[in-house]
């Protein structure tokens, strides 16, 4: 009896293990196939950026089988200004936005997380409510305001609101983070003679680096990708940012030259991809804790 069941049990266990292996293999195959499908358009755009436009229109493969580097050199100078002009404009807007958000949102977050003052609850509720406010609701009066200040076709409408902590989403993110920091450190600093500014600069900011990094990365990506507000406030081609410039590729020629367009699209997506690789840890943690895109 015993000698009979033993091998049978072992065989069953082996069979189950084999089945488990197959199941796992199939899962991986499925996940890889799906991932490949997702990335296929991106990779195709990448290889197409070094193909001649006629070939782009008939070659769906991902093999880098031709090397038309002229797409990049042609695309770079195809528009009114060389492409680095637009990269620089985008760079100014993005750098200004990142600095402004870091400064203004961390200050407001310190007030909400650490200070006691009258009306705090009400202000906090208002701040939370403005997170969900669509930009389209306020864009018309903002446009009227900025046109009266003569700020249309300057970068001010894109940066100054951020300096006034209107990206309340990041305030919320940092409030949550600062609340998790031990208050003992504040007390110790206070005993050592620090005021609120001292505590903020010497204790809270250095400890909030992860939240600041998340804020910086998302501000970078969102501002770099932003099209709507830049479209509204920048109509002078000299001030065009990368998204506005890319769009004129299609407008300016009747027959779209996809080669140079794809080449410049790759250039436009490059910084985001770079930040994605460098800041993955913060990105994933950021979305997981707060639910942003």
């Amino acid at each position: 009896m015993v000698t009979e069941t033993q091998p049978r049990g072992a065989a069953m266990r082996a069979a189950r293990r084999r089945r488990e292996h197959v199941r796992r293999l199939l899962t991986h195959l499925g996940l890889i196939a799906f991932g490949a499908l997702m990335l296929y358009p991106l990779l195709w755009m990448l290889v197409s950026s070094i193909r001649a436009t006629e070939q782009i229109l008939r070659d769906p493969s991902l093999l880098p089988n031709s090397f038309v580097w002229q797409n990049y050199t042609e695309g770079w100078v195809a528009l009114e200004h060389p492409f680095h002009h637009y990269l620089l404009n985008s760079g100014i807007v993005v750098a200004g936005s990142v600095v402004a958000n870091l400064l203004a949102c961390s200050m407001a977050a310190y007030a909400f997380a650490r200070l006691e003052f009258r009306g705090k609850r009400l202000f906090f509720a208002i701040m939370l409510a403005t997170i969900m406010l669509p930009v389209h609701v306020v864009i018309v009066p903002q446009y009227i305001l900025f046109s009266q200040l003569d700020w249309i076709n300057t970068f001010y409408p894109l940066i100054v609101p951020k300096l006034l902590a209107t990206d309340s989403f990041f305030i919320f993110l940092m409030v949550q983070f600062i609340r998790g920091l031990p208050r003992d450190l504040d007390e110790a600093a206070r005993i050592d003679g620090c005021g609120h500014i001292g505590i903020f600069v010497r204790i809270i900011l250095p400890l909030s680096v992860p939240a600041l990094a998340t804020t910086a990365i998302f501000t970078f990506i969102w501002t770099w990708n932003d099209f709507f507000t830049q479209l509204v406030f920048l109509t002078d081609p000299d001030l065009y940012t990368v998204p506005l410039a890319l769009r004129t590729f299609v407008d300016s020629t009747s027959q779209t030259s996809w080669g140079p367009l794809f080449a410049m699209s790759i250039v436009a997506l490059g910084p985001i991809f770079g930040f994605f690789l460098a800041g993955q840890r913060y990105l994933v943690k950021g979305i997981a804790t707060t639910g942003i895109k």
């Binding site: 203004a104 200050m107 007030a111 208002i126 903002q142 305001l145 006034l164 902590a165 609120h196």
Partner: peptide
């Protein structure tokens, strides 16, 4: 102290609320 500091730290946000968010609405 807190109230003073709140004025300082929340000042920019408050101006933004009035001129960029709530006012425009």
């Amino acid at each position: 102290q807190d109230t003073l500091a709140a004025g300082l730290f929340l000042g920019p946000w408050f101006i933004g609320l009035i001129f960029i968010t709530l006012g425009p609405i």
